[in-house]
Nucleic acid binder design. Structure first.
Lengths: 223, 223
DNA sequence: ATCTTAATTTAGGATATACTAAATACGTGT
DNA sequence: ACACGTATTTAGTATATCCTAAATTAAGAT
């Protein structure tokens, strides 16, 4: 049975908000999707009473995904991230412009289309922002990156992932040269504002970044 | 203002059925879209009363497109045919598999996406079936092809266009080698069933085709 | 234990897009 | 001019997805 775009978006959202199986609240979903909480309640009730059910719903306790719900969330996420990658690699989009386009395309492409772009890209494991792409059998590649914000001088690390889809943020990051794959060294962490001073590999000048940035950038520490 | 997929489909259909400005009937639209005539009436009324109106609607007389309606029909058709071309040329689809995929994608791609695939393809004027692709300023390329069915021996012609999207039909045509660009010579036209006997350039054996096929294949006569 | 506030759900509507059944208009042949 | 069959429209419903306003529940503070 073909599910609606709206439902696919709900599932993606619940997947994204539900770290380690903890239930996701109505309000959190509403905020993320930009719709009224009351509308979310209605939809959650419907999704819980479908067969098979897409979510476990406990009144006023929040929701978690069923196996079926997670399957569809991952399917949609795979579409999204493969599309983002394809748009950048094969159609010359800049990385800040792909999210919106992929959000619309992800709901309508066929499994055939998915397979073809995956193959054209060489079955990538990461999209241009470094987000892991669910594999064809819908398991999410794991990685042990941590927020840049958690590093201490003089640790060195590689940028792995930028966790914010907003175009202005992404343009800012790109201008600084912080794209996935870039190596960096933390020079100083200031006490109260938690700013980080760091140097990027191959760059002369230093950067100072606040937590609003460093918490969104995930890195892998170089031992 | 962004129009719904449904409305875009109605406009495409009215465009396709409305040869030389003649009004299109409710029933014809319903048949083509596979929905009930009553549903079409409702939608046509809505489309006629939008601002700007998308169609001229005269009760029980049928509808024609307004300038705005035609603009959107052509825009959608441009999307559709560029997508079909892109799927065949850049993603290796066979020509009988692209219609369905393009029907879903055409409603969600951005103008930016349109521009990029057009450029990647070298701004083609025809899709894989030979259908003309509206230009970026939304004029439809004209051509003077005619149905293969209208030829008489010993006329010679080039296949230009196959006017039927059904995958089995397209597979049949491809198996015969009748793709756009192929030259052929009409050897005989039989009197009552209007079968055509013909030979394709570069093929040894002859073909005999009935009107169900020859009326769907458009050719340009070689003088 | 109660009060207050924030989160959530219920109730009642709106819109877009379909449906079926019934009513109406049109065009053709007599 | 009329009657019949076909095309079309109207009327009344259904579903999906959103909304706002009001009611309810839960959780933390006094």
């Amino acid at each position: 049975m073909r599910l609606s775009h709206a439902i696919q978006d709900y599932l993606k959202t619940i997947y994204a908000l539900g770290v380690e199986g903890r239930p996701v609240s109505t309000t959190a979903i509403a905020r993320r999707l930009g719709i009224a909480p009351a509308s979310v309640t209605g939809m959650l009730q419907r999704m819980a009473s479908m067969s098979p059910p897409l979510i476990h719903y406990r009144k006023r306790r929040g929701v978690t995904l069923t196996e079926e719900g997670e399957r569809i969330a991952l399917e949609t996420l795979r579409h999204h991230r493969l599309l983002e990658t394809y748009l950048v690699v094969n159609l010359g989009y800049s990385w800040d412009a792909v999210h919106e386009e992929a959000c619309r395309l992800e709901h309508v492409i066929s499994e055939d289309f998915e397979r073809r772009i995956a193959e054209a890209l060489g079955n990538p494991e990461r999209d241009p922002h470094g987000d892991p792409i669910p594999t064809p059998d819908l398991t999410m590649p794991q990685s042990d990156s941590c927020p840049l914000a958690s590093l201490q001088p003089p640790q060195r690390a590689v940028v792995r992932r930028v966790c914010n889809e907003e175009p202005p943020f992404l343009r800012h990051i790109a201008r600084l040269g912080l794209k996935p794959g870039v190596r960096l060294e933390v020079l100083e962490r200031s006490a109260f504002d938690h700013n980080l001073r760091l140097r990027l590999e191959g760059h002369e000048d230093e950067l100072i970044l606040g937590p609003a940035v460093t918490e969104r950038i995930y890195v892998e520490v170089i031992s």
